[in-house]
Amino acid sequence: MCTYLTEKFPLEGSGKGAQGYFSLSEAMVYIDHPQHAPYEHTVNIDFLNPAKGPSARVAVELTEEAALALIDAVRTALASAPPGLAAAGGTAGAPDPSAVPARD
């Protein structure tokens, strides 16, 4: 079925699309027919920057199991890092970014 339903939210970060990296401004999640994955329905996640045009898009089409595993993996990864380490503006308990040794 075409669900016509879309969860959309603003975000900050970058993604790599067909033309290389670009900054992201929003993402949407919807369960509907995929373009490529060999299933009738998938969990589709698009990372977008509409200001840069329709091709500024990083897309994945995941099975339900894969989408849930992704959620768990993100939560596990975040739980294993100091709180706020990857936050946009840092948090009260976060270490000073300038104190984090640069990786090379």
Partner: peptide
Amino acid sequence: REAPGADPDDAAAAARAAGG
């Protein structure tokens, strides 16, 4: 209107993002 000249899949996503 949402995605002139875009790839069909990107156009579908852009139209969806704009509300269908």
